[in-house]
Simulated scan of single mutants.
Amino acid sequence: MAQIETFEAHVRQYENWYEEHPGMYQSEVLAIKEQLQELPENIRVIEVGLGTGRFAEALGIKEGVEPSPEMAKKAKKRGIEIIEGTAERLPYSALQFDFVLFVTICFLQNIKLALNEAHRVLKPNGAIIIGFLDKDQNIAKEYMARRHKSNFYGKATFYSVSYIERLLKEAGFKDLKFNQTLFNGEKEIKEIQLPKPSFGEGSFVTVKAIKR
């Protein structure tokens, strides 16, 4: 609950980050779009924990789940249908979606439960895509070094690629495919950086996995 209250109180600061870091934001969007290219058209897509809807809007996602009412207000203004809820208890019945997106797993209360919920609401052979900051790369390390000064990252948890890989497999996902972007420190990234396959160089990693 403390995390939700933090986002409620600092919506403007959250929005400002995207305006102040367009190169990072657009690089992350491109990495996610690359994973989306192989998905079929006319699919039902949801973003979980979509904040103010920055990624959903850029990716053409029309619905999502967000626990913060103040964040949800901004997302609704971007044309996104919002249901109040959490990743750990998605307000949907089983087998509803072709695709589930997460871009804020560092703020989840229980990542294992969230992945199990994603698996539950996905149709057979549906896909999950997770975009996250790799714990072992530059930007996550920078954020952790100054977490005591941050309204958002004070209680964030960053994960390694190997840990996310293991959790996805345990949750019932297969055929993992990775890409990466953000190859410098936060202050050095001024332009859009194109994604590369795999992981181990870029701070922002995306993984696509298929429901078994």
Results as ranks from 00 to 15, higher is better:
96 Q>E: 12
25 Y>Q: 01
5 E>P: 09
146 R>C: 03
105 I>M: 03
162 S>P: 08
16 N>K: 13
23 G>N: 04
140 A>P: 05
40 P>K: 06
76 K>Q: 11
15 E>V: 03
50 L>G: 09
185 G>M: 02
19 E>K: 15
9 A>R: 14
51 G>C: 02
48 V>M: 08
35 Q>L: 15
61 I>K: 14
188 E>W: 06
126 G>E: 10
103 V>D: 06
98 D>F: 03
92 Y>H: 14
199 F>M: 11
56 A>V: 08
3 Q>E: 14
83 I>Y: 09
77 K>I: 02
196 K>Q: 13
97 F>L: 07
169 K>A: 07
69 P>C: 04
105 I>V: 08
72 A>H: 02
9 A>W: 03
209 A>I: 01
51 G>L: 02
178 F>R: 08
65 V>K: 13
38 E>W: 13
120 R>K: 10
112 K>Y: 01
8 E>Y: 04
159 Y>W: 10
72 A>F: 04
69 P>M: 02
196 K>H: 09
180 Q>F: 02
64 G>T: 11
174 K>G: 08
54 R>Y: 05
57 E>Y: 06
70 E>K: 12
181 T>L: 03
110 N>F: 00
87 A>K: 06
2 A>F: 13
147 R>I: 05
193 Q>K: 00
170 E>I: 11
87 A>L: 06
63 E>T: 08
26 Q>G: 03
84 E>Q: 15
97 F>E: 03
72 A>K: 03
186 E>H: 02
76 K>I: 10
192 I>L: 07
37 Q>S: 12
152 F>P: 07
53 G>M: 09
140 A>I: 00
177 K>D: 14
187 K>R: 03
117 E>C: 10
117 E>M: 09
27 S>W: 05
207 V>L: 09
83 I>S: 11
52 T>D: 00
187 K>V: 00
161 V>H: 07
209 A>Y: 11
53 G>A: 06
176 L>Q: 12
163 Y>E: 12
25 Y>P: 00
